[in-house]
């Protein structure tokens, strides 16, 4: 028996995941419980829904990513990976995604395949290249760190509109833009957060900043999203910086140029492809 030389703490990463981070298109029907009853909650929900829907119809995407982890002492650690996603075919299934690591070299070729579900836990398989082993893994770890970074799994995965309730806070100026400030509260179990606060611009309806509040209600970390680029109406942030307010660590996630509509289909996301990635 060997240690699994995996950069993943063996868990989740799905939906339109990192690509969309909170803006993933979930054109599910409005959920009255998520929408709430007060004017503030309904406005927050409607604005989030507009942001959400701006992502629908992306088809599939491929992108190379670089994650730079920095600790308090300023030491850096870099992970390079490719990230491929397939938009769900209909509302009964979720997005599919595949991450393949290029570096660090000792985990090169490690891959994570995710089939997101709407209500059930996601299906996930890890490929360990040294053993040529495909292993189904648990997807129940939501608040854990992704590959040792300041990003938690749920930061990537829980992009479903209806998995939160909302509260509209008001308008603000942010980075020369007028933005709507919306608070949202996880409805799903095992979240590491009690609250998230989002700053969404009024021009292209994309999130520009997020604050994450821990289980004690204190600010845990801040995410800024920048370098938005337009791919025929689909917007993608190319620089995401997560700064932990409690331990001073920081993770920058930088995307290369996306390619959309590569002609991928569900066959490219079957479990059996893991052994032939490289």
């Amino acid at each position: 028996m060997r240690l699994h030389k995996s950069p993943f703490r063996a868990k989740t990463l799905t939906f339109a995941a990192m690509t969309a981070l909170i803006s993933a298109g979930s054109a599910l029907a409005d959920d009255p419980a998520a929408r709430g009853e007060t004017p503030e909650s309904q406005k927050g929900y409607d604005l989030s829904a507009r942001s959400d829907r701006s992502d629908a119809g992306y088809g599939d995407s491929k992108v190379d990513a670089r994650m730079v982890l920095r600790n308090q002492a300023g030491q850096e650690s870099i992970r390079n990976f490719s990230f491929t996603t397939l938009e769900r075919e209909d509302e009964t299934v979720g997005d599919k995604s595949l991450i393949v690591f290029q570096s660090p070299r000792d985990v090169e070729g490690t891959a994570l395949l995710s089939h997101a579900k709407i209500l059930d836990p996601d299906d996930q398989w890890l490929f360990l290249p040294a053993l040529k082993r495909v292993k189904r893994i648990s997807s129940s770890n939501k608040s854990g760190a992704f590959v040792g970074s300041e990003f938690a799994f749920e930061d990537f995965t829980i992009t479903e509109l209806n998995k939160f309730t909302y509260a509209y806070v008001g308008e603000e100026e942010y980075g020369g833009m007028t933005v709507d400030v919306i608070e949202r509260f996880p409805r799903y179990e095992k979240s590491g957060y009690t609250k998230q606060k989002t700053w969404v611009d009024q021009d292209i309806f994309q999130p520009r900043k997020l604050e994450f509040y821990d289980r004690k209600g204190e600010l845990l970390k801040t995410l800024t999203l920048s370098d938005y680029r337009d791919y025929n109406g689909i917007w993608r942030a190319h620089t995401l910086s997560m700064v932990n307010a409690q331990n001073g660590k920081r993770t920058d996630l930088v995307y290369d140029t996306y390619t959309f509509k590569n002609g991928l289909d569900s066959g490219d996301f079957q479990q059996g492809i893991l052994t032939r990635l490289r």
């Binding site: 240690l3 699994h4 030389k5 982890l69 030491q75 650690s77 985990v107 040792g148």
Partner: peptide, 9 residues
Amino acid sequence: NDMQDTAIL
């Protein structure tokens, strides 16, 4: 789950 992927089995 640190930057160095330290693990013990």
